[in-house]
Design a protein around this nucleic acid. Structure first.
Length: 491
DNA sequence: GAGAAAATAT
DNA sequence: AATATTTTCT
């Protein structure tokens, strides 16, 4: 009897737990896709990303969407620690995956509230009961009040122990003892990323100096110093904006008269050390004509580390308190200005730098500015106002009858779409990614699935026999090569 | 101080 | 052309 034929993996998951949403994060693409494909076979709906900051953005955007997060935490990656911290605060069950090298880190995470620790490599069977973590966690939060009386450690360890008895380091006692040894914490900072992979030179320099932002490990002052490196300035070219260029705004100004600018007067209260020293105090220059030109601030780059810090701050403050001033304070990044934070906050909801999880389907954002509703006509630019800052797409409305029509370029305003006094709901619809960019990830993934489907024999042959969990690395490596060959053939 | 939107840089 | 960040306006 081959279990394979008779039993679909998904049938091993109880019906009420099928299709739960899992957010999967793994810095290693191959492993990401591999695990995702396994999870999907169990019926889970998987959203994948390689970046912690993206994962957090997703979670922040749709709080309740994910019932379980599985993350490969790799100490050599700066994001991991902060990522785990933030996640734990979000009250989403989290399963950590990592190699033995990071075991202690994972233990600590367990104590802080993670559910489970899977040691890599992950096997198919390891994932079978993954749903239980989301389920049990849900039940637990219902009875949280009662639970709250228990000593906290106990609860946390209990959660950590919910295991299928496999792979988890059995027994809360072991875990707690090890943690109690406290050397665990010390081991958490150190070994900063030596294998910087894809980043460009500028980034690499920065990364090399970044420290993990661990409250315990980094003193503010020191932190300050290090974080300064985060502010990657775009080159110094300052653009000239002579009075000759008439923009909408400059026209307005021409007649607007008085309330002209205080130009740089309030230019960054105390933080102008971002400006290269020679430039200081020269915010205004003269050009040949003696005309005054204003200097534009060098742009900062919101690296994923910086963004992560931002999200961390926002998340710890909560949506209501998360205002630029407090966020800035919390982030404690020297040289970063409140305006920059404000500006980033403005768009942060829409910031998703990596859409590897996007299947290419339409993404709707239900948000519309009142000003757009009242506008006489709508064009595709109004798409921006409907929820996305800028970019291509259309604005649709949905009226009471549920009819949804495309408003862009229709020559009507949203108001005209409403019936009676009923409010219309405007929906910004993102254009699906261009076919070309429908992520390499997606097609690679599809290819992988197909490949797995069709060529199992070949795979086994290629590996010379039965697959074992321990073979994962070898397997992935082999797969990668096989896939590459394949795509070469198909050219 | 905040947020929206325009301007401008990449 | 599209996106990212800064600046202006309210």
């Amino acid at each position: 009897m081959q279990r394979k034929e008779l039993m679909l993996p998904s049938s091993m998951v109880p019906s009420f737990a099928r299709g739960i949403n899992i957010l999967l994060m793994d810095h290693d693409t191959t492993s990401l896709l591999y695990i995702a494909s396994m999870l999907e076979q169990y019926s889970y709906k998987v959203t994948t990303t390689e970046l912690a900051s993206v994962a957090l953005s997703l979670i922040r955007k749709e709080k309740d969407r994910f019932e379980l997060v599985m993350a490969n935490v790799d100490i050599s990656n700066i994001d991991s620690l902060s990522f785990v911290r933030v996640l734990l605060k979000e009250e989403i069950p989290i399963i950590l995956m990592s190699s033995r090298r990071n075991e202690i880190f994972s233990w600590r995470a367990l104590v802080e509230g993670a559910c489970f620790f899977l040691e890599k490599p992950i096997s198919f069977d390891d994932l079978k009961y993954v749903w239980q973590h989301s389920y049990i966690y849900k039940r637990r939060s219902k009875t949280q009040l009662e639970d709250a009386r228990k000593p906290e450690q106990e609860i946390l360890l209990n959660r950590g122990n919910i295991s299928q008895g496999k792979r988890i380091n059995e027994g809360g006692d072991d875990v707690s003892r090890n943690i109690a040894n406290a050397s665990a914490t010390d081991d958490l900072r150190y070994s900063i990323n030596t294998d910087q992979n894809e980043k460009n030179n500028k980034q690499m320099e920065v990364d090399a100096q970044v420290h993990i932002f661990d409250e315990n490990s980094v003193k503010e002052s020191q932190n300050a110093c290090n974080m300064e490196q985060h502010l990657v300035m775009a080159n110094d070219q300052i653009q000239e904006q002579g009075g000759l260029i008439k923009t909408k705004r400059s026209l307005d100004d021409d007649r607007g008269g008085e309330k002209k600018r205080n130009l740089n007067s309030d230019n960054e209260n105390s933080n102008s050390f971002m400006v290269p020293t020679e430039e200081k105090g020269k915010e205004m220059n003269e050009n040949n004509n003696g005309h005054v030109k204003k200097k534009r601030k060098p742009r900062i780059v919101w690296t994923s580390e910086l963004h992560l810090k931002f999200i961390e701050a926002v998340s710890s403050l909560g949506d209501i308190k998360a205002r630029p001033k407090l966020i800035l304070q919390k982030m404690n990044v020297p040289g970063l200005t409140q305006r920059q934070v404000a500006s980033h906050l403005q768009i942060s909801d829409n910031v998703i730098r990596d859409l590897s999880s996007n299947t290419g389907s339409l993404q709707t954002l239900e948000r519309i500015k009142p000003s757009v509703v009242g506008q006489p006509t709508l064009n595709s630019n109004d798409f921006a106002a409907a929820g996305k800052t800028q970019g291509a797409g259309t604005v649709q409305v949905e009226n009471a009858s549920g009819i949804s029509s495309n408003v862009a370029n229709s020559g009507k305003s949203l108001k005209q779409f409403s019936e009676g006094n009923q409010e219309v709901k405007a929906i910004a619809v993102l254009e699906p990614p261009a076919a070309s960019s429908v992520n390499a990830g997606k097609s690679a993934y599809a290819a992988l699935l197909k490949f797995l489907d069709e060529d199992e024999e070949e795979i086994r042959a290629g590996l010379g026999g039965e697959l074992k969990p321990a073979d994962l690395d070898r397997y992935c490596e082999w797969l990668r090569e096989a896939l590459m060959e394949k795509s070469e053939h198909s050219e």
